[in-house]
Every structure is written in structure tokens, then in C-alpha cells.
């Protein structure tokens, strides 16, 4: 192995169940239920997953949910906007902590 991330590893995800089959079973059922059509459509949930995948920067999830979004009928424009949402929240999260910087600076300043 010359890299921590290999595309073929994505399909090995279920092997995680070998160490704790009951926990894997619970996770799988819950995961399936989360992405099923509900108050949100499967397409909307896939777009949220794609955005979160970018926020947590998981290459497996980005690969999987790019395909899922396409298979749920989203197009590249919509998917790019979802990634911008993730980027805006990440960027905004950094920036809004600037208020803490200002508070800290104020506390020690004359």
C-alpha cells in the first residue's frame, strides 16, 4: 500500500462488520432508513450527503455520493451548488470565530 486511500477499499466497507457484526447490522439498517424517501426526497438527501462529504473531506463519500447524486437525477450545476453550501459553512464557521478573536483581544486590551 502506498496510499491511505484506495478506491477499491470503498467496496470493502462491509468488512468492518467482521469485528462487531451486531453493531454493523444496526448501523446498516439505520443508514438505509436515513437515506430512504421521507419528508425529504432521496435526491435531496443525496445532495446533503454530498455537501457533508466535502465538509468532512471523505474521499470515499465524495466518490459514492457523486455517483448517487447523478443516479438520483441531480446535475452538475446542482451538485456544485451543494459543494458551495458546504464550503460557505466551513468558511463562515472560520470567519465567525473571528468574534472570539475580537472578544479575546478586547479583554486584554486597554
Amino acid at each position: 500500500m502506498n496510499t491511505y486511500y484506495a478506491p477499491e477499499d470503498l467496496s470493502k466497507f462491509p468488512t468492518i462488520g467482521e469485528g462487531a457484526p451486531e453493531l454493523w447490522k444496526k448501523f446498516s439498517e439505520w443508514y438505509g432508513a436515513v437515506f430512504a424517501e421521507g419528508a425529504l426526497s432521496e435526491r435531496e438527501k443525496a445532495l446533503i450527503a454530498l455537501a457533508v462529504a466535502h465538509a468532512v473531506q471523505c474521499p470515499y463519500c465524495i466518490d459514492a455520493y457523486t455517483q448517487t447524486c447523478l443516479e438520483k437525477g441531480s446535475n452538475e450545476e446542482q451538485m456544485t451548488e451543494a459543494v458551495h453550501v458546504a464550503a460557505a459553512i466551513r468558511g463562515g464557521a472560520s470567519l465567525v470565530h473571528g468574534v472570539q478573536m475580537k472578544n479575546a483581544a478586547k479583554k486584554v486590551s486597554l
Binding site: S41, R43, Q67, L70, E71, K72, G73
Partner: peptide, 17 residues
């Protein structure tokens, strides 16, 4: 038909789009 190596979306929802 998909413009790439992925499966088509739900026929019903794509028809609406």
C-alpha cells in the same frame, strides 16, 4: 440515458424534471 458510467435516476422523477 446517463451521460456516463452510472445508472439512470428514477424514471418517474426524471420525467417530471
Amino acid at each position: 440515458n446517463p451521460a456516463g458510467a452510472f445508472l439512470p435516476p428514477s424514471q418517474k422523477s426524471l420525467e417530471a424534471d
